[in-house]
Structures are given as C-alpha cells and as structure tokens.
C-alpha cells in the first residue's frame, strides 16, 4: 500500500485500537508486581503477591479443581468431537442440517442460558452440584468447538488421499489409522487445546453449576473481585493470562492457516 496520508491515518488508528486492547492487560500485569496494597501508586517491585498466592490454600484448591475439570472435559470432548467430525465428513446424513444446527447451537446461544439450563437439569434430576456437574457442563460446551476445529482440518484434507489408500488395499480402519488420523492430528491437538482453554477460562457456565466445594479459578477470582481489591487477584489474573496466551499460541501453530489450503 502506498505511503499516502490515508495509510498513515489507518496505521495510527489501528495502533490506537491495539493499544486500547492491550494497555489494560499490561497495566494489570504490571501492578501484580507492585509492592503497594492500595494499588495505584507504585511503591516498588515485588514477587510477594505471587508468593502469597502459592501459599493460599484455597487458591491451590481452586487450581487443582480447574485442572482436573480441564483435563477431564478436554479428553472426553476431544474424543467425542473428533469421532463426530469424522462421521460428518465421511457420511451424508439425512438430517444433515439438523445435525449441523445442533453442533453450532451451543456456540450461538448465550452462555448464561446454557448455564442456567444445566442448573435446572441437575436440580430436577437431583444431581448434586460439584466437580462432576462441572465436568459434564464443560464437556457440553467444548464439544461443538472440537467438532468445528477438527471438521475444518478434515475439510481441508484432499479426498483423494483416502481413495488412494483404499485403492492400495487399506480397509476403512487401516485408512483411518495410517492416513486420516496422522493428517488430522494437528487439528485434533488444536481442538484439544481450545477445549482446555475454554474450560479453564469458563466463568458463566461454571457460575451456575458449581457446588460449594468445587470452586474453579475463575469463580475464585470473581468472589475476590466482588469482595474488594486484593493484589493477589492481580497476580492470579496475570498468571492465568500468561497460561491462556501460551495455550492459544500453541493452538495457532498447529492449525493450518487457511492460506495453506491453496495446495488443493
């Protein structure tokens, strides 16, 4: 693009918006190292809020819960989602549009509706609220994301690979094991990372279906925020941000960019 005044204005505006997006997060991270309790004045660099965090029993409990729920829901939703994506890719169903609709619905419906509907379900079915109910809920909203992520990878895969494999004496199972699976593995891993991130990140749905002893990190943060400012939250938030950023970058590097489909 030529270096006209127009392009300079565009650049300036874009940088401003990017700054708008990042400055609050950077400030948050900065202040997690601030020695002062009354946030805004900078009194010195310290790690003590992070130390306090690691000694906080409730935080550690919440962390463990978050990780357990994260891993469990990731494993189940990735498995179910991958199988579903393969089924959708391979077969033409009579109710194709209904199935597609059902897959997209959990993403399109506001989270709050999904959360409370699960609460209503559990209460009517007399299922106690706890880690179990959280895992069931998380699997439900992660499922769609996995189906879409793996599905995209499958769509990008040329169909003649599987035909060639079949022509070369591979049974459908062998075709899946030696050809399809290796080729879609990056998509599966990306889907799993997305599911994990969504799970550890989730607040709204967890808010409704968590039990008294099954706090997750986001729920813990919420409770603290409502109670008042404590620099510990800054530290915890910063840590969560760091983890989420790393997970997202990992998932990105495993996804084929849509430009790579040009080799079709």
């Amino acid at each position: 693009m030529q270096k006209t005044w127009r392009s300079h204005v565009l650049l300036a505006y874009s940088l401003a918006i990017l700054a708008f997006l990042y400055v609050p997060l950077v400030i948050l991270a900065m202040y997690s190292f601030n020695d002062s309790r009354i946030n805004a004045v900078w009194t010195g660099f310290t790690f003590r809020w992070y130390e306090q965090l690691f000694n906080n029993r409730r935080v550690l409990e919440a962390l463990i819960n978050t990780l357990i729920i994260g891993f469990a829901s990731t494993v189940v939703s990735t498995t179910l989602g991958t199988i579903a994506a393969i089924a959708l890719h391979r077969y033409k169903f009579k109710m194709q549009s209904v199935i597609n609709g059902l897959v997209y619905l959990p993403i399109l419906i506001p989270e709050i509706v999904m959360g409370l509907s699960l609460l209503v379900l559990f209460s009517q079915a007399h299922v106690p609220l706890g880690k179990g109910s959280l895992i069931l809920a998380h699997i439900t909203f992660c499922l769609s994301f996995v189906v879409i992520t793996v599905g995209a990878r499958l769509d990008g895969m040329r169909s003649d690979y599987e035909q060639a494999a079949s022509d070369l004496y591979a049974t459908p199972w062998q075709c899946f094991r030696y050809i399809t699976l290796p080729l879609i593995m990056p998509g599966i891993v990306a889907g799993a990372l997305i599911a994990f991130t969504l799970s550890i990140d989730d607040f709204v749905i967890s808010f409704f279906v968590a039990g008294p002893n099954s706090t997750t990190l986001p729920l813990y943060i919420y409770a603290m925020v409502k109670r008042g400012i404590s620099p510990e939250i800054n530290a915890l938030s910063t840590l969560m941000m760091a983890v989420e950023i790393i997970l997202v970058l990992l998932a990105e590097f495993l996804q084929p960019s849509h430009k790579a489909k040009a080799d079709n």
Partner: peptide, 28 residues
C-alpha cells in the same frame, strides 16, 4: 490476527477487572 485474538481468549472477568483497576476511585 493472533495479536488481535489473544485478548479474546483471556477471561472476560480478568479483562473487566483490568478496567476496574484503571477506573476506580483509587485506580490508575
């Protein structure tokens, strides 16, 4: 694009809280 999307992946809660730190009475 990744640069724009990273904030998207960070918890709504944390992002709102960041603004609280900035905007509140004794805030930044």
């Amino acid at each position: 694009l990744i640069l724009c999307m990273i904030p998207f992946w960070i918890n709504f809660l944390i992002r709102s809280y960041a603004w609280v730190i900035i905007l509140r009475a004794q805030g930044v």
